[in-house]
Amino acid sequence: MRQADTAFESASGNRRAPRLTAYLLLTPLLVWVMAFVVAPALIILVYSFGERQVLGGVTLGFSLRSWARVGDPIYLAILWRSVEYAGITTLICLVVGYPVAFVVGRASERHRPLLLTLVMIPFWTSFLIRTYAWVTILKSEGLLNSLLLQLSWISEPIEMMYTPFAVIIGLVYTFVPFMILPIYGSVEKLDASLIEAALDLGAGPWRAFWKVILPLTRPGISAGVLLVFVPALGLYAVNDILGGGRVDMIGNVIENQFKGTARNWPFGAALGTALLGAFALAFWLTRRPGRADRAAG
């Protein structure tokens, strides 16, 4: 990809030093981030050093009690499990979602918005109703089991509800659009002639995909991975309804500190801060300045 590399080089060479106007234009974003991201994050950080109050809430102070618990192997194990689930979900979403994004992105211009909206519409129902519909499908006397029995593919119902399988199905279902949409944005701008050229030069479809299409859509993929993996890490409602809450995710544990009888806000805040910190660090390291996800573009 010599050509793309030069394009990138000149692109980054073209990034200007901001003048006053550019700073002014950035102000809304800056203000928003300071007010509604940084300020709440600081509140949580301060809370994590406080002491628990009877009714919930925090007595401010400097106590390391909550932080001492964060490193407990129980919670590390729970965090690791969440990472595993989020990772598997992201991988399946990518494999399942990429071809869809490709088809939608290469469809005729007239149909693209329609197809895109069709992908999203199912999610305009309430999460709860959707997930209960999955229960109806997956339960032991449910639709899927009835169908399989009818077809004589199985002789007795398979247990699907309240298993990791059900949780993964639910997670993939919830997140696959967030993989499809950003990849669509990258596929859509692919130059058809580029693909044809690759094919003309004798590359098979597979090689053309691997050598031309995939590298060109990498920014979309990394955006999709970000938009699926990160929220999947904190989600626990799917786990509760389809998994029966048998294993805790890190989201469950944090939630319990605020909404469970423990009412231990400082510990919840400490766990939350740790999660934020880990994410910020990982993000910081993977987005090397200048290059990052722009590289292969």
Binding site: V37, V230, E255
Partner: peptide, 14 residues
């Protein structure tokens, strides 16, 4: 860039 994406990771309850 990093700060912008924090709201995605922070658990909803927090």
């Amino acid at each position: 860039q990093t700060l912008v994406f924090l709201p995605m990771i922070v658990p909803e309850v927090i």
